[in-house]
């Protein structure tokens, strides 16, 4: 498997996209520092990038890469190589190079300007989101043989989790606002990895936002060790579940 990962990495580097992505993140982070020296504001701006751009880039790039690697996958599968290894190699190589790009692009400027605890959280949640959306992208990719369709499905995932889901959540809150909704909304948040990452970050950055009776409830939950364990395991679940599902489909897929 390590041998295959090597070649996937090689292929990823050839496309240069990962390098562009790193450069983009670097430029953004440096620009935020130039515009505003305040760490809090820089991290907040990066939070928007993390919640919007990282999932989008991860999901689209992974899907395109999967279809561009179709020949490679076909070639490998005619060889004495396990399907699982091929799939995992592709997955690990894409996810780790995207994460690396994110960590380098955001982390380097902070190394220069001085690190800060929320930055670490930002990096960790960013990496988590990257893996989640690479998983979702692979899932979308094995669902169909049509590249355009797969990209469509992948974009839909992104659109759903970053916008539609929150709209539905707002609707639920609006409709049932007369009832105590804390537990319900808490579990609904857990069903969206982007929301989960956002809440974890907000707890680090501007807790003031989460004040008031309702906010205090969420803060107590997510601020506790149990809450952190809860968020981390849910994010892990969001990574593993689509990935396992995709691998199962891939194992039975006709090439």
């Amino acid at each position: 498997m390590v041998r295959i990962i090597k070649y996937v990495f090689y292929d990823l580097l050839r496309t240069r996209f990962i390098l562009f992505y790193t450069a983009f993140l670097l430029v953004c982070t440096f620009a935020f520092f130039q515009l505003d020296g305040d760490f809090g504001k820089v991290v907040l701006s990066l939070l928007n990038i993390m919640l919007m751009a990282v999932p989008l880039v991860s999901v689209v790039f992974s899907t395109i890469h999967f279809f561009n690697s179709y020949e490679f996958i076909e070639l490998m599968l005619a060889q004495p190589v396990n399907r699982k290894s091929v799939f995992l190699s592709e997955y690990l190589a894409v996810a780790s190079s995207l994460s690396l790009a994110f960590v380098a692009g955001v982390g380097l400027p902070f190394l220069l300007y001085g690190a800060w605890q929320p930055v670490a959280t930002l990096m960790v949640t960013g990496v988590f989101l990257t893996w989640v959306f690479v998983s979702l992208a692979f899932f979308a990719s094995v669902l169909t043989r049509d590249k355009a369709k797969a990209i469509g499905v992948a974009l839909l995932f992104w659109f759903y989790f970053s916008l539609i889901y929150d709209g539905l959540l707002l609707w639920v809150i609006y409709t049932f606002s007369d009832y105590p909704l804390e537990k319900l909304t808490l579990s609904l948040i857990a069903l969206n990895p982007i929301d989960l990452a956002r809440i974890v970050m907000i707890l680090q950055l501007d807790i003031s936002a989460l004040m008031g009776y309702t906010g205090a409830f969420y803060k107590n939950f997510f601020g506790s060790n149990l809450g952190i364990l809860f968020s981390v395991s849910l994010l892990l679940l969001w990574i593993v579940l689509p990935m396992i599902l995709a691998m199962r489909i891939f194992n039975k897929k006709d090439l």
């Binding site: 020949e71 490679f72 070639l75 060889q79 004495p80």
Partner: peptide, 23 residues
């Protein structure tokens, strides 16, 4: 079914050879 080691004993020439294009 779901085995892969046996392919060690097979040489395969596909109808249309599809290879990583950048290689």
């Amino acid at each position: 079914l779901y085995d892969w080691k046996y392919r060690d004993k097979i040489g395969y020439m596909p109808q249309i050879g599809r290879y990583p294009e950048n290689m």
